[in-house]
Amino acid sequence: MTSPDLRHHGDVDAAPGLADFAVNVRVPHPPAWLRDRLAAALDGLGRYPSGQAEERARAAVARRHGRSPDEVLLLNGAAEGFALLPKLAPRCAAIVHPGFTEPEVAFRDAGIPVEHVLLSSDFRLRDVQHDADLVVIGNPTNPTSVLHEAAALKALPGRLVVDEAFMDAVPGEPESLAHDPDVLVLRSLTKTWGLAGLRAGYLLGDPETLARLAHGRPHWPVGSLTLEAITACCEPEALADSARFALEGAEHAAFAVAALGDLVVVPPKGPYLLVRVPRGTREALRDKGIAARRCDTFPGLDDTYLRVAIRPPEEFALFVDALRVVMEELA
């Protein structure tokens, strides 16, 4: 039976009416051009998703990463990819923590033994040892916002699965393994493009493994709007926008780090940061209308950590001011 805490995600912390620093979606809704693309596709909802639309989406993803279309598996959000991983039937799965907990949920629910690989206080890979034949890690890792070197990832023992859900928020994507045919890589489109409610993502890997993962999925596994979103978000114009957003995000992260100072645990590379605060801070922030992601549901962390979504400076200042008041009160 999966621990209920492992199923906790930031959307639960971000209740209506609270200023949301708990969810890592960049914007609250898709940009106008993407809304227009999706709106134009609405008239086709009376038809089943077509094979041609799926082929276009796979081809767009393949071009984006320099892969072939048969190395792309389209998903209803990256989280669906984790649910498919037990089909690989590993003897044991190693999950690098602190990290996203959905892979562990999927393996435990399938009866596959799970081994925790707990990283030390700076949350970087050093001399990692485990007894599993498959290892899952996020890059950049959620919630620590650490970006691991590609060479360090490749040196991990066992079959490698890398969750790159936030990689497009890293300027230049310098440590991505999306091009590597020997690695399974998950990507999400919902964070950058405000599509959390639509669910859009994909898996990159060798054709044989992807066919194994796809076996048994229902017919029409990905809906028409998701296919349109995947195609649109992998086209050159969208990629140029995404690159610009990543650079802006790095500037916003620099402001956040300067504003929070020593509370920041490690310099953030993703669109969120990990802070260390007194116990009771999250609840006190909530009382002041601020939502932050609790971190005691991540193996290796406790309730003195918070994950905070990085926002533009004028928005992030609201969090900084509230946190300053709360820490004075708690002191």
Rank of each mutant, 00 (worst) to 15 (best):
Trp220Arg: 00
Ala211Gln: 11
Phe107Asp: 11
Ser176Ala: 15
Ala284Ile: 00
Leu247Trp: 09
Leu263Gly: 07
Ala151Thr: 13
His148Leu: 03
Pro313Val: 10
Pro49Leu: 01
Pro157Gly: 11
Leu285Trp: 11
Glu228Pro: 03
Gly261Arg: 07
Ser176Val: 05
Asp13Met: 02
Arg35Tyr: 04
Gly77Glu: 04
Ser224Ile: 05
Ala41Leu: 06
Ser3Asp: 11
Pro69Lys: 02
Val135Thr: 15
Asp321Met: 15
Pro31Thr: 05
Asp5Val: 10
Val162Lys: 09
Glu329Trp: 07
Gly261Gln: 02
Val277Pro: 04
Leu213Cys: 12
Pro181Asp: 12
Pro267Leu: 15
Glu328Lys: 15
Ala59His: 14
Leu45His: 04
Val185Lys: 09
Ser188Cys: 15
Arg276Gly: 01
Asn24Leu: 09
Arg199Thr: 00
Leu160Glu: 12
Ala291Ser: 03
Ala59Met: 15
Phe166Pro: 03
Pro312Thr: 01
Pro299Val: 14
Arg37Pro: 00
His219Gln: 07
Asp168Val: 00
Leu153His: 08
Arg58Asn: 03
Ala243Pro: 08
Glu104Pro: 00
Ala155Glu: 15
Gln129Phe: 13
Arg58Glu: 10
Pro16Ala: 04
Glu102Val: 07
Asp70Lys: 02
Pro30Leu: 11
Ile230Gln: 10
Ala132Trp: 01
Glu208Ile: 14
Glu228Tyr: 03
Pro313Thr: 02
Gly223Arg: 10
Asp11Gly: 04
Cys295Met: 09
Ala196Arg: 13
Ile290Met: 09
Ile137Ser: 08
Val264Phe: 12
Ala254Leu: 10
Leu301Pro: 02
Phe255Ser: 01
Cys295Thr: 08
Leu6Thr: 00
Val128Ile: 12
Gly223Trp: 04
Ile112Glu: 04
Val183Gly: 06
Glu328Met: 14
Trp33Asp: 13
Arg56Ser: 11
Leu85Ser: 06
Ser188Val: 03
Phe298Val: 05
Ala200Ile: 03
Gly205Asn: 00
Asp122Glu: 14
Pro157Thr: 11
Glu115Met: 07
Ile230His: 12
Pro207Asp: 09
Leu260Trp: 10
Pro312Asn: 02
Pro174Gln: 06
Ala57Phe: 10
